[in-house]
Design a protein around this nucleic acid. Structure first.
Length: 1212
RNA sequence: GCGCGCGUAGCUCAGUUGGUUAGAGCGCCACCCUGAUAAGGUGGAGGUCCCAAGUUCGAAUCUUGGCGCGCGCACCA
């Protein structure tokens, strides 16, 4: 047995550290006392088992020691709730703000969630991201106020209340009474408030909930009013018609989201109807346009027929019916003929434009007088029939139908657009008016007697029958398609229906919106010109009003007599109006219910009661319009309305606009992202001038602040949607996800945060799976915790006392620690220490860079690699130092102390680096490692420290590269062993390494680390191979990136030629003359220069070798009898240890060993190393006997029976 | 239907301006360690890079067309 063995034997013979298990038990009992005032100074007597340690004497220091014991198996959820409570008690969030007051601002806007629904995992994600960056920037020295907010208005709230009341239509709400209904809405808004607050605190989202803005509060409403009045006064708020999806039975329009929920596949009648063209005197011709529709009930409202101008149409005639000719788009003629099962002859072929302007006979004449079509005055001069005329339209396609589109402006958005466009062509008032034979309840009016009083859809059959009777029906069939129904009343089909509505002229600002958008940093980038940009491109005016109850009332008052309107910017301005009355309605309600919120003053129905004298007509009164507004407008006003600006909060607004950072999920592109951008752009304008110099926004004037793009936000992280366990949409009924509370209680908030932050880029859709969350724990949190726990255990044993060594700790940065007694500069420390600090500071630099670029996913990856480096290389390779004798004190073991200082600095720095990601566990580490020894001399919380600054001087890039090389070599060595089934327990004589690139000086360095490699690989000797040709072959590879552009088509030949050439000769030529010539055949040749070729090293077969990109590692396969014996002995030791474990012996238990084997070889091996075996297994005696009962075990083919007896105890 | 995004190992995902042997984690199998221990480490197996055509000396990567999934807008006469 060689020297190394003896060393190890010596070590094991020392009963060092065998008390570990009991100590850990104690830690569990102690818990996390650091957080409370009751910092545990547990009596030593609880540390049972300590008596086994010869170094117990050193434990006397423990009593005054500052590091709390750490439990080996952490209970993260319990830890987190304790820390959370401590933060609350100590006001740590407030303190983190206080110390940055006056610093540069980092402005964050909270997109308001609605508190009338339960928070779900998606909110956990947004709240994690929204927490990370403010925390990070605060640690970087910026002042980041975080004001919470709640979105409280809108249909969802009304729906909740309706459910509760068991009603659903507007009529029922009215019957119930608007006033009590509103009261219910206001209460309902806070229904899940507690859950939201709990979630917010539990996930560690630091935000000021006490100062939250609330969209129904009077101050907020008044800011919104100001914005609306501003738009109104600038002529940007107008009243118009809009075609909406109308739930006729319920008397309300539905939002697109609601409509989307109600689509069902149904079969509707599909009819092809003839529209006979009219001649000059108004008589029907033979020729008929053929139009197609799946909603026959809209035919009475027909006003136009649309064709595509540049599309070819054909006039078809059936030989058996010469009295009628059909006009359809040429590409669709065949399919029509097929449907009709008829052969047609093409009479004529004409472009669509040939029909534009022609009059036709509509299918019903309810709005039309017989005779020639009446004409109307065109705006450009001249006359034209206003309606029942062919128009050209680009939206006409040949995908289906006939290429002739029936236009009923009352019942289709596109159709309505045609009407508006046509109206514009005529002199004011002369153009076509909207024809609508349907009442708001969905029944035909008397204007269409055939269907009068009946629901339109029920009239489809009668209409079709009538058309057939009059010879206008060309064809009829069933058509299966998706059609929306009311999501609350499944039998009620929705219809498109015109309603009056208020609009904001956003479309006029399209260019400004795009210019503003151009300046916003979107993550991921494609949002800017993709989804969001496209949305802006196709901007239409914002349909603002809602015919509902619970929302910000539209602050427009209209004159009874003249119909003229004005907007009111605040409640105060309203009260100042002449002859104002009606406020008493609220006052009375308040007297009846004193608990009534004063905010309801500005809500329906109270606000509707307030009227005043009209400035437009003497004796007339001004009354508010009945509508409330789209709640998205509320949210978009949040940048200023959260401060009540411009009525108040002037300073706050000036300081907090625009936002540096916002983040929400992708569904907000048309929601909050748009509402903010639109409102800000319309109100504050701005230019595309870069706003780099100084603040983009100076609020000098309350009404017209000068703004430069971008505003109101600079950077926006758009998060992906979260999916359930099965990759489907999360849904309560499907139960495909775990409640956040369950995750918190089981794995903890840090685990969930880490899963979100490090699991995937934030914009991919995240599959929220319990398994993935669970598995994210060991890879980072637990590993970090183990290192931390390892450190504390040994620091306590060895008396490592930074608090005593350093009087003024500062923030425990590298420079601060340098003042400590016993601290040595890295240059004087072991290489491993310098390596660790290199990694630490290099990672610090790159993490900072990545977080500054809002790339937390990459930053988390860096962090994870760093913790892996600490755990799996630094600690592992430093064990000898931590386990060596001597105390970690000045005057003690210098190398040991170095190791402690290195690990201490690393852990403190990692805690700060990771603090924005996993705020709880890092707090626990900081509290113990920093506050433990230093108390009040250091910041009480890791979140009150600065983010680490990389000290470039400590980064030794060569060392980092070379250490990585050693780790590679170790891995390759193991791979080589594994390939030959040479297990690590079998010592081998030698390992040889061939470096792929021998020029970097790495070889010498590696050779100097022979011990390390030998230790890792369990070999006796290390050598940089002197005759690599024995083991490897080299081949030349052309550098394709370089040669490709130069050689082009010759490249394949060149590759073949280079592969066939003698690599040694080429390399030599390049080395000597700077270039080498390789013939290509055909007289051509390739000139190779330095860098044109790469050398690839491959292991020759027949050796125990493994190759990687940087090295080939060869281990000696041959094992001498001595090596085999050592291997056998190690197998025996392993077997004994396994038995010890099976017998559940304490680590400290001494044993007696008795062996029996028929194998003389095995016996000889063991006997030769008996001392070693005894030491490794804590055996007081190890003997051989000839007969022993028991099951023999296999030691590399040698049977062995053994008996393990606990010394001094009963037979084990 | 239109738009945006995405299809890479059993699962979750990386893959930088096209370049030589496509990676990681988890899971699986085998092994190692047993003084951080209901942890830790190492190795291995596992891939038609959705399909097809094209551009190119060369395509997971670029183009076009399919197919599939997610989301958004519509539902279209």
């Amino acid at each position: 047995m060689g020297e190394r063995k003896a060393e190890k034997t010596g070590q094991a013979a020392r009963p060092a550290g065998r008390f570990l298990r009991p100590a850990a038990t104690v830690c569990q009992e102690v818990g996390f006392g650091i957080l409370g005032p009751a910092v545990a100074r547990r009596p030593l007597w609880r540390c049972r088992g300590l008596g086994y340690d010869s170094r117990l004497c050193s434990f006397s220091a423990l009593v005054t020691f500052m590091f709390e014991p750490v439990r080996g198996k952490p209970d993260f959820p319990a830890l987190e709730t304790a820390i959370s409570a401590w933060w609350r008690e100590q006001g740590i969030y407030g303190k983190s703000l206080d110390r940055r007051r006056g610093g540069p601002r980092f402005v964050f806007f909270e997109g308001p969630p609605t508190a009338n629904g339960m928070p779900h995992p998606g909110h956990c994600l947004t709240r994690t991201i929204k927490d990370l960056y403010p925390r990070y920037r605060t640690m970087r020295g910026e002042f980041c106020e975080r004001k919470a907010g709640w979105d409280t208005h809108g249909l969802p709230v009304e729906v909740e209340v309706c459910k509760e009341l068991g009603i659903h239509s507007k009529a029922e709400i009215e019957a119930h009474g608007v006033e009590p209904f509103i009261h219910k809405c206001q209460e309902s808004v806070w229904r899940y408030m507690k859950e939201w607050e709990t979630l917010t605190e539990r996930i560690g989202f630091w935000i000021d909930l006490s100062q939250a803005y609330v969209t129904y509060h009077k101050e907020f409403v008044e800011s919104v009013w100001w914005a609306l009045a501003e738009l109104f006064n600038r002529g940007l708020l107008y009243k118009g018609h809009k075609i909406v999806w109308w739930w006729a039975q319920g008397g309300t329009a539905l939002s697109s989201g609601e409509v989307g929920q109600g689509y069902r596949e149904v079969a509707d009648p599909s009819v092809y109807v003839a529209f006979p063209l009219l001649d000059e005197v108004g008589q029907p011709e033979r020729r008929c346009l053929v139009a197609w529709t799946t909603t026959p009930w809209t035919l009475p409202a027909n006003q136009f027929a649309a064709v595509k101008a540049d599309l070819d149409y054909v006039v078809l005639r059936h030989p058996g019916d010469v009295d009628r000719e059909l006009i359809v788009a040429e590409p669709l003629a065949a399919s029509l003929a097929e449907k009709l099962k008829q052969e047609f002859e093409v009479v004529e072929r004409l472009p669509g434009s040939a029909f534009v302007g022609r009059s036709y006979l509509p299918p019903f004449d309810i709005f039309r007088q017989p005779g020639p079509p009446p004409v109307a005055l065109l705006a450009a001069g001249g006359n034209q029939p206003a309606a029942w005329r062919v128009v050209a339209a680009d939206f006409v396609t040949t995908d289906s139908g006939t290429g002739v589109v029936h236009i009923a402006p009352a019942f289709g958005e596109v159709d309505y657009g045609v009407l508006v466009a046509e109206q514009a062509r005529f002199a004011t008032g002369a153009g076509p008016t909207l024809l609508n034979p349907v009442a708001a309840d969905g029944s035909f009016t008397d204007a269409f007697p055939m269907g009068s009083g009946r629901f339109v859809k029920e009239c489809d059959r009668d209409i079709t029958r009538d058309l057939r009777a009059r010879g206008l029906l060309v064809h009829q069939e069933q058509y299966v398609h998706d059609y929306p129904f009311c999501w609350r009343a499944e039998k009620d089909p929705l219809i498109q229906y015109p309603r009056e509505s208020w609009f904001i002229r956003t479309s006029r600002f399209r260019e400004q919106l795009l210019a503003n958008n151009e300046r916003i940093e979107w993550l991921p980038e494609h949002i800017k010109h993709g989804r969001f940009g496209n949305f802006l491109e196709s901007n239409v005016d914002w349909a603002l009003s809602r015919e509902r109850y619970w929302g910000t009332p539209l602050p427009i008052w209209v004159c009874d007599q003249t119909g003229r309107a004005e907007a009111v910017p605040s409640y105060e301005a309203l009260l100042a109006k002449p002859g104002v009355t009606g406020m008493e309605v609220f006052e009375e309600a308040k007297r009846a219910r004193p608990e009534l919120s004063d905010d309801l003053r500005v809500h329906k129905p109270y606000i509707d009661a307030v009227t005043y004298d009209s400035p437009f007509a003497a004796g007339s009164r001004m009354r508010r319009v009945s509508e409330v507004i789209d709640c998205w407008f509320d949210s978009g006003c949040m940048p200023f309305a959260q401060w009540g600006w411009p009525h108040r909060g002037r300073e706050e607004f000036a300081a907090q606009f625009p936002a540096d950072f916002i983040s929400e999920a992708i569904d907000q592109t048309r929601g909050w992202f748009y509402s903010q951008l639109a409102i800000s752009t319309l109100l504050f304008g701005g230019s595309a001038e870069p706003a780099d110099s100084g603040p983009a926004f100076t609020c000098t004037d309350a009404v017209d602040p000068a703004a430069g793009y971008p505003h109101p936000f600079r950077t926006c992280i758009v998060l992906g949607h979260m999916l359930g366990e099965d990759g489907q949409k999360m849904s309560k009924s499907r139960r495909n996800y775990r409640e956040p509370a369950f995750i918190f209680d089981t794995y903890g908030a840090d685990a969930l945060r880490w899963f979100f932050l490090a699991g995937q880029p934030p914009w991919t859709s995240i599959r929220y799976s319990e398994r993935a969350i669970r598995e994210s724990v060991p890879e980072f949190l637990l590993r970090l915790w183990n290192v931390y726990s390892f450190f504390v255990i040994y620091a306590r044993i060895d008396g490592f006392d930074p608090g005593g060594a350093l009087a003024e700790p500062g923030t425990l940065d590298h420079a601060d620690l340098a003042r400590a007694r016993g601290w040595r500069p890295p240059a004087e420390r072991a290489e491993l220490d310098r390596w660790m600090l290199s990694e630490l500071h290099a990672t610090t630099a790159s993490m900072t860079e990545k977080l500054d670029a809002y790339d937390h996913f990459a930053a988390a990856g860096e962090l994870s690699r760093l913790v892996d480096a600490v755990s799996n290389w630094f600690v592992r390779r430093s064990r000898d130092r931590f386990w060596s004798a001597g105390r970690a004190e000045p005057g003690g073991s210098v190398e040991k102390l170095d190791a402690y200082w290195t690990l201490y600095e690393t852990l403190l720095t990692v805690a700060r680096l990771a603090a924005p990601f996993v705020p709880f566990v890092t707090e626990a580490i900081w509290r113990n490692l920093a506050c433990g020894p230093f108390g009040d001399r250091v910041p009480a919380s890791v979140h009150l420290t600065d983010y680490p600054q990389a000290a470039d001087g400590l980064v030794d890039r060569d060392l980092v590269r070379r250490m990585a090389l050693v780790r590679d070599v170790a891995s390759l060595g193991r791979a080589a062993r594994a390939a030959e089934k040479l297990k690590v327990r079998q010592p081998l004589a030698k390992v040889e390494v061939i470096l792929a690139d021998p020029d970097v000086g790495d070889a010498d360095w590696l050779a100097a680390h022979a011990d390390l490699v030998c230790d890792e690989l369990n070999v006796k000797e290390f050598e940089i191979c002197q005759e690599p040709e024995r083991y490897i072959s080299r081949s030349l590879l052309p550098d394709l990136k370089k040669l490709g552009p130069r050689l082009g088509k010759d490249l394949p030949q060149a590759r073949a030629a280079i592969a066939a050439a003698d690599p040694t000769a080429i390399l030599a030529a390049i080395q000597k003359r700077g270039q080498a010539v390789v013939p290509l055949g055909g007289g051509r040749e390739v000139m190779l220069e330095e860098g044109d070729v790469l050398v690839r090293t491959m292991a020759k077969p027949g050796w125990a070798a493994a190759e990687g990109p940087r090295a080939v590692v060869v281990v000696a396969k041959e094992v001498s009898p001595e090596l085999i014996a050592e291997g056998l002995v190690r197998e025996v030791v392993h077997a004994v240890q396994t038995r010890r474990k099976a017998l559940d012996l304490e680590f400290t238990d001494r044993i007696e060993l008795v062996f029996a084997t028929p194998s003389t070889e095995l016996r000889a091996a063991v006997e030769a190393h008996l001392e070693y075996v005894a030491a490794e297994t804590l055996a007081e005696r190890a003997t051989f006997t000839t007969t022993l009962a028991g099951e023999p075990i296999d030691i590399d083919g040698h049977p062995l029976v053994m008996d393990v007896i606990r010394a001094g105890g009963p037979h084990a």
